[in-house]
Design a protein around this nucleic acid. Sequence first.
RNA 1: CGGGGCGUAGCGCAGUUUGGUAGCGCAUCUCGCUUGGGACGAGAGGGUCGCAGGUUCGAAUCCUGUCGCUCCGACCA
Length: 568
Amino acid sequence: MKASQLYAPTLRESPAEAELISHKLMFRAGLIRKAAGGLYSYLPLGWRVIKKISQIIREEMDAEGGQEIMMPIVQPSEIWQESGRWQVYGDEMMRMRDRHGREFCLGPTHEEMITSLVRAELRSYKQLPQLIYQIQNKYRDEIRPRFGLMRSREFIMKDLYSFDKDESGLDESYKKMFDAYTRIFTRCGLEFRPVEADSGAIGGSNSHEFTVLAQSGESSIAFCTNCDFAASDEKAELKIIIAPAEDEKPIEKVETPDAHTIELVKNFLQVPIEKTIKAVAFQDDDGKLILAFVRGDHEANEIKILNASGAMHLHMAEESAIVAAGGSPGFMSPIGLKDGTIVVVDQTVMEMHNAVAGANEKNFHFINVNPKRDFKNVIVADIRKVQAGDPCPHCGHELKMTRGIEVGQVFKLGTKYSKAMNATFLDENGKAKFFQMGCYGIGVGRTMAAAIEQNSDEHGIIFPRNIAPFEVVVCPINSKDQAQLEFAEKIYEELKNSGIDALLDDRPERAGVKFKDCDLIGYPMRITISPKSLETNSIEVKIRKSGEISELPRDNYLDQVKKILETL
RNA sequence: CGGGGCGUAGCGCAGUUUGGUAGCGCAUCUCGCUUGGGACGAGAGGGUCGCAGGUUCGAAUCCUGUCGCUCCGACCA
């Protein structure tokens, strides 16, 4: 490809709306353009990257026995009615009617579609397992699309669905995909972690998210400094922290004027924050009060509280509800509440001794609270959020927190969809059984964005070689100098002939302009052709990532170029 | 859905307070000059000022409505 013919409009300035580095750079480098909120066109350079990522995904899916298919984007409502998700999905689903008034949606995902497809044809255990995938646009009418390709309404996703005859088969399929994902993101040049995740609304028993480490990420993860453990902050299971043993003192009520926050209480009573217990009040959809207690320096984890309390949804409690249950906002404890109030206490709180907690009376706290002795009728569970410094639940070493971008997830669905949609096969004994299913997604556009988010500097993108729009750009200093241009063209042809994905920047621009564009777009390697090249019969190689420059003799540069590319 | 901000040339913005017939930088086109890090000079093209209605002799500017974008939050996997 010659740059003079390439549709790659680069910009000096980024649009005002772009917040993330990756968003700005994708826009400035001419990779994408916006059509409307959350809807993007991929220009030639951007699409080349997408195709390279897709190809890596294909190769790894196929290596595990995946078979590529293509299902319709437009899906009939009936299959969604069957699974019950036509209602559940809500406003996030893009819906439409045809001329006869029949309802359809633009597929936000394809569990229903694949299940309805497969149940007609896969009838025997002998046909299992099956790993079936597609790479295709998905539609989710996000309440707030943002960050360019990170959260868009139309996005490219690889979704694979596994069908197994039993749970151990599913375990195997899951493992295959887990390993394939690890290879895919490694090949894409990403620094990532598979993290244990909450399986959320898609359902199922087991789930990992593949998260690219980046400060701008939307999800927060905890990871161990010693072992492989990593989990999303919502999911991370925590060990009980046992406080040092103490003699239990009798409980005592003390006046704590205006000390309605933990900070004020600890200062007023001169106790360490680890000796305090704080409350968070929620109500469920029916208005029922749910009080959660965690140690003063800990944060309550809503998801865990939800699971522990059995509620469907939680929202912050109204003051009146707290008062009605016998509590006093800012001065709450599980002691002396009215019967029937749901109280969830963090497991670590139960191990505290002679602690400080509210007295359920304005301006009063209890001291010398011993939860095991003093708390009655409470649910004890792990309900706090992980924080930096917590011990790893696997090995006990210190956990650290980081932010990340979720680029893929793997779910064990089990029989959730096969049951709902009555998808069965006959087993060895001729008995009908539900498929054990798994689903495995990768956001292709998001992977591109994440790669850029993780690989850039003040000059622009630094593409990992495997997903770069071109591996090498050949850049004559002065394209109007016929000798230089011819020299560059020869190099370009030689690179192409030896299988290297090269671009010739033959634009009649000044060298500075071309260099700036090369850096902005982020080709891993630039080969500069200058008058000196002609004189000494050599080429100059510049590595985008390191800025390193080297002279290579014209005769045998190809092997060295290949060798260097291997490292990028 | 709540709260803030914004819609003026492809991009970034000024002009709006105090109505008087639209401007700057970048980009684009032509010519000259220049060619190792976004040069310079001269010239040119490009905007129903988001849309609709109203006030006015006159509206980018004031009023009403509407659409869209965007940020924070809530919601959601």
